[in-house]
Nucleic acid binder design. Structure first.
Lengths: 149, 149
DNA sequence: TATTGTTATACTCTATAACTATA
DNA sequence: TATAGTTATAGAGTATAACAATA
C-alpha cells in the first residue's frame, strides 16, 4: 500500500487529535487558574518574558506571545496599573516603548511561579515518570509548532 | 541532593512550559483556521463527537467538550440553524434533548476533515518522524490531562 | 427538591481599522 | 512613506444567574 497516503492520512489524524487536545487542555487550564491570582495567564507570561530577557518593546512582547500590538498594549496597561512593570522611552527611537519588570513585578512572578502551575503540576505528578518525560520532550515541539511561520 | 525537591521543581517548570506551549499553539491554531470554513473549531468538534458516538444530549456534549451547558446550547443553535444537526426530544426524559448529525452535517464533517487540519498537518510533515511519533504519543496524555478531575 | 436545558447578561481575550507620533 | 504604539470598536467564546419544564 502507498506509504505516502498512509502517512498523510495518519498525519491528518494526528493533527486533528492534537488540535482537540490542545483546545480542551487550554480551556481546562484557564478554568483551573488559581482564583486569588489577580493576573491573567497572558500577563504572567509577559512577566516571565521580561524576567528572562530583560527590557522588551511592546512589539517584541507581542511577537513573542503571538498576539497583535493592541492586545499587548492592553496587557501592559494592566501590568503597569498594578505596578508590575514600567514603561520608559527608547533611547534612540522615540516611537518605541521599553517595558521593564518592576521589583513588585519580580516578586509577583517569583511568588506566583510555584503556585500558579499548581493544578497542572499536581496532574503531572499523577502521571508515570515515562509519560512525564514524554511531555517534557513534547513541550518544545509544541512551542515550535506555535512559533514557526 | 533532595530528589523530591528537584523533581517537584522540575515538574513546576514542565507545567509552566507546557501551559505556555498549549496557550500559544491554541492561539495559533485559531488564527490559522481556513477562512472559508464557516464553522468554528468547537462546532466542528461537536460534529465529530456526534459522528463517533451517535446521538448525544446537550449535557453529554458539554461534558465531552468541557464547556458549560449554555455554551453548548449556543453551539448547537448555530449548528441547527445551518442544518448540520437536528434536535429531537428524549424518549423517556422530557427534560433532555438529543442532538443528531444530519446528512448535511455529515457531509460537512467529512469534506472538511481533510482540509480543516491543513495548516497543522503541514507543520507536522515538516517535523522529523521521531518528533511526530513523540507527539502521537503525547496527544492522548494531553487529552487525559484535560479530561481528568 | 433536583436536574436539564434555555435565556439574559457580562466578562475576557483577541482582532482590525483609524489615528498619533516618530523615523 | 513606513513603523511603533494607542484608541476605538467589534466579534468570538465562555461563564454565572435566573428561569422553565420535567423528574
Amino acid at each position: 500500500m502507498p506509504t505516502l497516503e498512509k502517512v498523510t492520512r495518519t498525519d491528518a489524524g494526528l493533527a486533528s487529535e492534537l488540535r482537540l487536545s490542545v483546545m480542551r487542555l487550554r480551556r481546562r487550564l484557564v478554568a483551573e487558574r488559581h482564583p486569588d491570582n489577580e493576573l491573567s495567564m497572558n500577563a504572567m507570561a509577559v512577566l516571565g518574558a521580561l524576567h528572562r530577557h530583560g527590557e522588551l518593546t511592546i512589539g517584541e512582547l507581542a511577537t513573542r506571545e503571538r498576539v497583535k500590538a493592541p492586545s499587548m498594549t492592553r496587557t501592559v496597561n494592566w501590568l503597569e496599573d498594578g505596578g508590575h512593570v514600567a514603561r520608559r522611552p527608547h533611547e534612540t527611537d522615540g516611537r518605541q516603548v521599553l517595558v521593564a519588570l518592576s521589583d513588585r513585578g519580580r516578586e509577583t512572578l517569583l511568588a506566583d511561579r510555584r503556585r500558579r502551575d499548581e493544578w497542572l503540576a499536581r496532574r503531572l505528578r499523577d502521571l508515570t515518570p515515562a509519560d512525564r518525560d514524554l511531555l517534557r520532550r513534547a513541550a518544545p515541539i509544541l512551542e515550535r509548532l506555535a512559533q514557526e511561520d
